[in-house]
């Protein structure tokens, strides 16, 4: 699984894709490809991280990401422990600082954190000796999602990133998935388009290395992949949108709109999907959908990340 002998993983934490070099990304994706084979065996388990402890600290509701990390850890034979917000000291008003010290005292090898505050993963990483994986912090970053999207696109595009065009459609402003994907895919040479109503675009977007579209029909023309983002119902309550029906009329990816993309262009969605809202059921279930492939890629990619961080303490990853 190691081609470049000179390569060495050097990061204590994975907080955002911005910290990764191109060799880091390639290494993670190659490692994920080898773990993907494990996941297809009758016995889906390797002893690689036997005796290692991984804490899943999810201070924000999550089912799929948490399960994905849990499965990834268990398939590497690590012990995984969950700490959820409800029923924990977090809901009793304990500060993140105090939670951090409590976690440290348990001496885990890796902590995966999901938190509603942007910067929360960095906050705990600065205070802990163990490796920290950002499982999503506020609107800021979701590096393992971007890596698994990258893994999925690499396969769909047969390893070619440079010169490809990806459209990310939906709520960009409040999306950590969008931020991490913009960083990672532009780093790989992909042209990124974003499409959303202006109320769902981030401040300072003029400095982002992306092309902006306000109509989906224009945005989707000739792209090599489409990523739809989940629309959160609270955006309507925040006054950013008039109503959901209008949103879906303007921004739902229908089979007809998808036909304007390059043929075979894969369709991605970080899930959970709102059928008929940002993505038509016929597209979500259609031949170009890679949504379930993303889930499988998620386990493999997270196995790679957990492996790299948990092994690092032992002096390298060979």
């Amino acid at each position: 699984m190691e081609n470049d002998k000179a390569y060495l993983w050097s990061h204590k934490d994975l907080l955002d894709v911005t910290q990764l070099s191109l060799p880091d990304v390639t290494h993670i994706l190659d490692l994920a490809a080898s773990f993907e084979l494990v996941n297809q065996r009758p016995v889906k388990k390797v002893p690689t991280l036997k005796g290692k402890s991984i804490v899943l600290f999810f201070a924000e509701n999550s089912t799929r990401t948490k399960t994905s990390f849990d499965v990834a850890g268990k398939r590497l034979s690590a012990d995984t422990f969950s700490l959820a917000k409800s029923g924990s000291s977090i809901s009793k008003g304990e500060s993140l600082q105090d939670t951090v010290w409590t976690l440290q005292a348990m001496n885990p090898d890796v902590i995966v954190i999901r938190h509603s505050s942007s910067g929360a993963a960095q906050f705990i990483a600065e205070r802990l000796q163990c490796g920290v994986v950002n499982g999503g912090d506020g609107w800021h970053a979701h590096p393992t999602q971007a890596l698994l999207d990258c893994f999925t696109l690499r396969r769909a595009w047969q390893g070619q990133f440079a010169g490809k065009t990806l459209l990310i459609a939906g709520d960009i402003a409040h999306s950590r998935v969008a931020r991490s994907n913009v960083h990672l895919l532009t780093k790989l040479g992909v042209n990124v388009r974003i499409c959303a109503p202006r109320t769902l675009l981030p401040a300072g977007r003029q400095t982002w290395p992306v092309e902006y579209f306000d109509t989906l029909r224009d945005a989707v023309k000739g792209v090599d992949a489409v990523m739809c983002l989940r629309l959160q119902l609270e955006r309507m309550l925040d006054g950013l949108l008039p109503d959901l029906a209008e949103y879906s009329r303007r921004f739902c990816l229908t089979p007809e709109l998808l036909s304007l993309a390059n043929s075979q262009a894969p369709v991605l969605h970080p899930g959970p999907i709102n059928r008929g809202m940002e993505i038509a059921a016929a597209v979500a279930d259609g031949a170009q959908s890679r949504i379930l492939d993303q889930v499988a890629a998620g386990v493999a990619t997270r196995m790679a990340v957990l492996y790299l961080l948990a092994q690092r303490k032992d002096g390298g990853n060979k």
Binding site: S118, W139, H140, A203, G204, R205, T207
Partner: peptide, 13 residues
């Protein structure tokens, strides 16, 4: 402040 930094780091400005 709402601006380039807030948009980049994902904080409401």
């Amino acid at each position: 402040n709402e601006g380039i930094t807030s948009g980049m780091i994902g904080v409401k400005g």
